[in-house]
C-alpha cells in the first residue's frame, strides 16, 4: 500500500455544556488510501462529527483536537480558514444527508452546482454549462437541461440526492465523505444512489468514507469498515470479514440483523453492559 491519503490520529471533538465539556468523538485513529471506508454506528456515536471534523466544519464552541490530521501530506490542523476553503469542495467533498434540507431552497439546482464549480475554477459560462450537463448525465439524469432549471422543491428525494452528488463531485475531489447519503431516501432508490456514488468513486479512483448506520449496506459498498460506538472505534475489519468480528457491540449488531427465511420470534436486544461497563 502506498502512503495513505488521509491519516487521523487521536481525533477528539468536544462541545461545552452547562455541565462541562462533553466529548462526542473520543480519540479515534484511522488511515485511508484510495479505498472505500465505511464508518458504521448508531446515532450519537460520533460518526457524522468525524466526517465534519475532517473538513474542519465543526463551528465554535465545538472544539476539535488531534495528534495528527493529515490529508495528502497537508496538516489540516494548521490550515487557516482561507486555506481550508481551497481544500473543501475541490479536494475533499461531502455528500449531505437529506436533500430536502441540504439544498438551498431559493436557488436553482443548476446555480448550486455551478457555484461548486466556479468557486474553485474560473471557467467561461458555456464551459460551466457543458460541465454541469455532463455531470448530471453521469449521475443518470436524462434531461439535464430541464433539471438544472428546477428548484429543490420541484425535484424528488432521489433526484435531489443525485443533484447533491453531482454538486459535490463536479470539482473532482480526491476524497468524498458521504454522510448518510441514503438515510432520507426510499429503499427503492437507495441502491440506485449508492451505485452511482460507487461507480463514480471507482472510475475516478477517489477515496470514499461512507458514513451510515446500516451495517449491511456499508459491507456491500466498502472495502473496510470501522464500527463506532459512543465516540470510539470499537472494531476495524475488512468488509468481507465482518462475520469474524470480535467486539460484543459488533456481534450484537450482527445478531440483531434479520435474515430472510428465518423464524426467530424475537430479535435480540443489545446488552450494553458487556462493553460499556455501567
Amino acid at each position: 500500500m502506498t502512503a495513505p491519503m488521509l491519516s487521523v490520529e487521536n481525533l477528539r471533538v468536544s462541545f461545552p455544556t452547562h455541565r462541562g465539556r462533553v466529548e462526542v468523538v473520543k480519540g479515534i485513529s484511522f488511515e485511508l488510501g484510495r479505498e472505500r471506508l465505511g464508518i458504521v454506528g448508531e446515532s450519537g456515536s460520533g460518526k457524522s462529527m468525524t466526517g465534519r471534523a475532517i473538513l474542519k466544519l465543526i463551528r465554535k464552541p465545538g472544539l476539535v483536537t488531534a495528534d495528527r490530521l493529515e490529508f495528502d501530506g497537508i496538516d489540516l490542523r494548521a490550515q487557516s480558514e482561507k486555506q481550508m476553503r481551497a481544500i473543501r469542495g475541490a479536494r475533499i467533498s461531502m455528500v449531505m444527508q437529506d436533500p430536502k434540507f441540504s439544498l438551498n431552497p431559493v436557488m436553482t439546482v443548476g446555480e448550486q452546482i455551478a457555484e461548486a464549480l466556479v468557486t474553485h475554477e474560473k471557467l467561461a459560462r458555456r464551459e460551466v454549462e457543458e460541465r454541469i450537463e455532463a455531470m448530471l448525465h453521469s449521475v443518470r439524469i436524462d434531461d439535464p437541461k430541464r433539471v438544472a432549471g428546477l428548484y429543490p422543491h420541484e425535484v424528488s428525494g432521489g433526484m435531489g440526492q443525485r443533484v447533491m452528488i453531482a454538486m459535490m463531485l463536479i470539482p473532482e475531489p480526491e476524497l468524498l465523505i458521504a454522510d448518510e447519503p441514503t438515510s432520507a431516501l426510499d429503499v427503492s432508490v437507495q441502491a440506485q444512489v449508492l451505485d452511482i456514488i460507487d461507480d463514480l468513486v471507482t472510475s475516478k479512483g477517489m477515496g470514499l468514507i461512507l458514513i451510515s448506520h446500516d451495517l449491511n449496506l456499508v459491507s456491500r459498498y466498502c472495502d473496510r469498515i470501522l464500527v463506532m460506538n459512543a465516540g470510539t472505534v470499537v472494531e476495524e475489519c475488512a468488509a468481507g470479514q465482518l462475520d469474524q468480528a470480535s467486539h460484543p457491540y459488533t456481534r450484537g449488531l450482527l445478531a440483531a440483523m434479520p435474515t430472510i427465511n428465518e423464524s426467530r420470534d424475537e430479535l435480540p436486544v443489545l446488552d450494553r453492559n458487556q462493553w460499556a461497563g455501567t
Binding site: R85, G89, Q97, S102, E115, A116, T119, M167, P171
Partner: peptide
C-alpha cells in the same frame, strides 16, 4: 443544512 452544504463547497 444548506448553509453547511455551501461551506462544504468551499
Amino acid at each position: 443544512e444548506f448553509v453547511t452544504t455551501a461551506r462544504v463547497k468551499g
